[in-house]
Each structure stands twice: as structure tokens, then as C-alpha cells.
Design a protein around this nucleic acid. Structure first.
Length: 346
DNA sequence: AAGCCGGGGGT
DNA sequence: ACCCCAGGCTT
């Protein structure tokens, strides 16, 4: 039995019933694939339901405001996906009259759509024989064939793409692609895979050589940098506060935050007080400065640890760009801030 | 080729 | 503490 047949047989029995598997609508498949980039099914599932419900068609998404899209995306991370999603929806509506691209080459031109996503949409929606290579595919193939080429090298990416393309079921590329991904996700897991009941056990090179834990090979380690964030939570006597849009490139682009003072190290009350005096809006003084969290809140991103203090600044009057505190939940904010907003009783 | 971009979950 | 996730973009 070939690995192709084994995988599709396994899938026919173990296939999960997921909402994006009940449709071939390219708009819906595209939505699901963008949401699932670097995101596990269980985390992405509720977001998919929300997006389909709020934006039933690509026209609805194109007509939305970016901040509304980001608000629905809030908490999912990698926010460039949401920005690209919106941009691409507008592009398809305006330039392609709302007709979704229907082949790999054309799909690849869309912003936010790379080799994996173009292959997924082309195969699932249009039966194009295009093999997907995601984290699951790397793992299954590297173990089964004992391939030690690093999966995050350009040579490795080409090698695994060619291998997957060679194995794909040409009569049913959609089923094969989803089969190998589902298999990797639920059977051939990164840690403690279920080898004892694996249908590929007899031919799996990694299992035979007892090297399951060493495959796939991945080089480079992400270095984590440490940053110190001080957020200024202004509260005026007429129940307003200040939120700023992060317009610069980098994390959380186009999300909102309280005015931020980034420092090289953890600062104390008096140092914050000096910083505060340099703020134009405090020219007329403020009533009180207090620290919300005694211990730093350490917000861990994949490549940064954010040591965070929330400073409460009670103030008589705020300028016009301030917002009503009761409207604060309308704005898309990072999880770090939404956690604070929920914890702090304004 | 390497770095950047989130947040949640598993071990 | 470290790894991974239905990756893609920028430099």
C-alpha cells in the first residue's frame, strides 16, 4: 500500500467535520486558510464563524472598515493577516469584479497568499493538482522518508514541495492535501505521536530508526528580546481616556493602545513622574499618578517578552482626541491591553 | 537567507 | 523554558 492510499484511507475514516469542509466557496476557503496560518484549528474555529457571519460575502468584507476587521481579528495575532485580508477583498471586488481567482498562479498574486495558501485554495476549490506543504506535511514526510534536510531552509522547502507534489493523489488533490495535514495534526504529532497505532508504522524511517523525536530538522532559534512598556491610562473627570493608533511598522500595527513610554529598564514612580511632565496634555497638571500592577505583567510573544506597567493618571481635562471610556471596547487592541481593560474597573 | 510578526497550547 | 501551530512579508 502506498503512503498516498494509506493517508487517504485514514482520512476517510478519521476526517473531522469542520465548517470549511462543507463548502467549496473560494471566499470561505480563503478566509479559513488565512485564519489557520500559524494557528491551530481550535483557536481559529470561532474566528471563522464570526467572519463568515459578519461578512457573508467578499463584498461585505471589502465594504468594512479596517478597524472593524481588526476588531474581529483581535486576539488571533499576526495582525498583518487581517490587514492583508481586507486589502485583498477590496482588490478582488474592485479589480476583478468580485470574481475570486481560480488557479494557483493567480491566487499566488494575492497579498497574504503564499505557496501554501494558493495550493490549498486551488486544490480544495478548483481540483488543481497542487500539493500543500505546511508544518504538518513537513513533519509527516520528514519522518516517513527520514529526510533530514532542515525544513526552514530554502533547499528544504523545495525538496519537501517536490516530494509532496510527487505523492499527491492526482485524482483527488483536495482530499489528499487535507488528509496529510489532518494526519500530521492528530496522529503524527510533534510530541508523543501515536506511533503504536500508526498505519504507516512499518515503513516509517523515523520509527524504524527510533528518530521520531529528531525529525523534522529545524535550524535557527528565535532569540527573545526583553522590552519595558509603560502604558499611561489617563482618566479625566468626565470619564474620558486616550487611545492612540499604532501606525508605525512592527507589532500591533493599526491596533490601538494607551500612550506608551518604552524604557530601557524597569522604572520607579518618580521616574514615571518626570516622563509625565514632558507630556503636552499634562501642562495644566494632573491630580494623581498611581501604579496599577505592583509586579510587571510579562506578556510573552514569540520573539519579545514585554515587561509591562499600567500607570493610572487622573486628570482634570483631556484634549479633543480623547475618547469616552464607555466606548473603549469598540477599538481593536492587543490582548495585553484587553486583559487590562477587563481587569481594571474604570 | 534571516528576521519579523501574536497568542494559545502541549510537554 | 522550549516547542509548535493549515505561513507570508520584508530586508
Amino acid at each position: 500500500m502506498t503512503i498516498t492510499k494509506t493517508l487517504t484511507d485514514w482520512y476517510s475514516v478519521n476526517k473531522r467535520d469542520l465548517p470549511w469542509r462543507r463548502t467549496k466557496n473560494p471566499y470561505h476557503i480563503w478566509l479559513s486558510e488565512i485564519i489557520l496560518q500559524q494557528t491551530q484549528v481550535n483557536q481559529g474555529l470561532p474566528y471563522y464563524e464570526v467572519f463568515v457571519s459578519n461578512y457573508p460575502t467578499i463584498f461585505d468584507l471589502a465594504n468594512a472598515k479596517e478597524s472593524a476587521v481588526l476588531k474581529l481579528w483581535q486576539g488571533l495575532g499576526y495582525y498583518s493577516r487581517a490587514r492583508n485580508l481586507h486589502t485583498t477583498a477590496q482588490y478582488i471586488v474592485k479589480e476583478l469584479s468580485g470574481r475570486f481567482p481560480d488557479n494557483y498562479k493567480a491566487l499566488l498574486k494575492l497579498k497574504g497568499v503564499g505557496d501554501y495558501t494558493a495550493s490549498a485554495i486551488a486544490s480544495i476549490c478548483f481540483d488543481e493538482v497542487c500539493a500543500v506543504v505546511d508544518g504538518n506535511v513537513y513533519r509527516v514526510l520528514s519522518r516517513y522518508f527520514g529526510v533530514k534536510t532542515p525544513i526552514n531552509s530554502s533547499i528544504g522547502q523545495k525538496e519537501f514541495k517536490a516530494l509532496a507534489q510527487q505523492l499527491i493523489d492526482k485524482n483527488n488533490p483536495a482530499e489528499f492535501n487535507q488528509a496529510i495535514m489532518d494526519f500530521g495534526s492528530r496522529q503524527c504529532k510533534p510530541k508523543s505521536p501515536d506511533c503504536s497505532v500508526c498505519p504507516l508504522q512499518n515503513d516509517c524511517q523515523a520509527y524504524i530508526n527510533n528518530s521520531i523525536a529528531n525529525l523534522p530538522v529545524k535550524v535557527k532559534k528565535t532569540r527573545v528580546s526583553k522590552k519595558h512598556f509603560n502604558f499611561l491610562v489617563f482618566i479625566s473627570h468626565d470619564n474620558k481616556t486616550i487611545l492612540e493608533k499604532r501606525t508605525q511598522r512592527g507589532i500591533w500595527q493599526n491596533l490601538y493602545q494607551f500612550p506608551l513610554v518604552e524604557t530601557q529598564s524597569s522604572i520607579k514612580y518618580n521616574e514615571m513622574k518626570s516622563h509625565l511632565k514632558t507630556f503636552p496634555i499634562t501642562n495644566n497638571g494632573y491630580d494623581r499618578l498611581s501604579l496599577f500592577n505592583k509586579e510587571d505583567i510579562i506578556h510573552k510573544l514569540s520573539h519579545q517578552h514585554l515587561h509591562t506597567k499600567f500607570w493610572i493618571v487622573e486628570i482634570e481635562h483631556l484634549p479633543k482626541q480623547s475618547i469616552l471610556i464607555e466606548k473603549i471596547r469598540d477599538y481593536p487592541v492587543p490582548v495585553l491591553l484587553s486583559n487590562f481593560i477587563e481587569a481594571f474597573n474604570f
